[in-house]
Simulated scan of single mutants.
Amino acid sequence: MLINNQTATKTSRASNHRISAAMRGQDATLERLRVDRQLEEALTHGPDPLHLAEVFGLDEKTAMRYADSARQLLETAAEQNASGGPQ
Rank of each mutant, 00 (worst) to 15 (best):
K61T: 09
A8C: 14
L50C: 05
L43M: 07
D59W: 06
G85H: 01
L30P: 02
A53G: 15
T29K: 08
A63V: 01
N5G: 13
E79R: 15
I3Y: 06
L2G: 14
I19V: 13
A22I: 09
Q6C: 08
A14V: 11
T76M: 07
S69K: 07
A70H: 01
E79W: 13
A53S: 14
I19A: 05
G25W: 09
H51L: 14
E75H: 03
R18H: 07
E60V: 15
R65L: 11
R24I: 06
A42T: 01
G57F: 04
L50I: 05
T9K: 12
T7C: 07
T62P: 10
V35A: 09
E79K: 14
R24K: 13
S15H: 13
S15R: 14
L50M: 07
P47N: 01
V55P: 00
T7A: 05
Q80T: 09
A77L: 11
A70L: 05
E41W: 03
D27N: 14
R18C: 04
T44K: 10
G25I: 05
G85N: 05
V35N: 11
M64N: 10
S83W: 06
D27S: 13
D48Y: 01
N4D: 15
L52F: 02
L52R: 00
A63Q: 00
L52S: 00
L50G: 13
S20D: 12
T9C: 10
E54H: 14
R24E: 09
T9E: 12
Q80R: 12
A70F: 05
G25D: 14
T9M: 12
R24Q: 13
N4W: 01
L43P: 08
G57P: 03
N81I: 04
E54C: 08
A82Q: 04
R37D: 07
T44L: 14
Q72A: 11
A21R: 05
E40P: 04
E60R: 12
R24T: 11
